[in-house]
Amino acid sequence: MRVLACIKRVPITGGRIVLTEDARAINTQHLGFTMSPHEECGVEEAARLIEAHKGDSVVLTLGPPEAVEQLRDAMALGIDRAIHLQTDGQEWDAEATASALTDAIRADEGPSGRFDIVFFGNESADSGGFQVGARVAHALGRPLVTGLKKVTVEGASVRCEQEVEGGRDVYVVPLPAVLTVKEGLNLPRYPSVPGRMRARSKPVAVSTPARPAPRLELVRLAVPAGQGRRAESLGAGAAAAPAVVEMLQKAGVL
């Protein structure tokens, strides 16, 4: 079995987002980075599938040179090798991203055989375009199921549970397939020290695709106006309990 997990490097925004001077990006000077939360579950699922079925697992990203950190994180969780489509740090829109990822998938599948499953996050944490997986699936001519909380390979097909209001919808599609997943699909393992050590020597194939002009073109970012809350202190410590209970009564919930 061959499984691919696609990831995106994003900043860990913490409590308050600060923009760069030109308001075209988040000021990340004091921030750490991670892969989008949904994608971490895609990586974990890919690693588990290969542990169970044997084969080849690959992680793919489009991002700046530093995104190799997230590729190493994925390999520390058990992924075998990585493909890094390097950018100069400029943002790529979803259409261009999907096109570059599709080319990279085709190039890797040529010598190695097709991926049975390609995992994406349901949406990236930062730009939230909700579409890269769909574009890649269409370009590859493979079925796409989105928003998954459970994935079970059953022979030549895959049973998928999608979170919807009031439960889960079930889909069964033939492999190869493209699946977008949501956090909660699994609980990603904490990478072991040997896992991290092994990840350092796993191969990363690097290429530098050209960035086409975006058709969804970012002009500027803005932090939305606060909701105008002005916190009223109900006190400190256990002595605040009566004031809390009065507030709950006033709110009509007690």
């Binding site: 987002i17 988040i26 730009s127 939230g128 969804l216 002009v219 970012l221 803005a222 932090v223 939305p224």
Partner: peptide, 14 residues
Amino acid sequence: LRWGGSLLEEARLH
């Protein structure tokens, strides 16, 4: 909306 609504993006759609 970006970041689940924590950030707004003005954009041009060509």
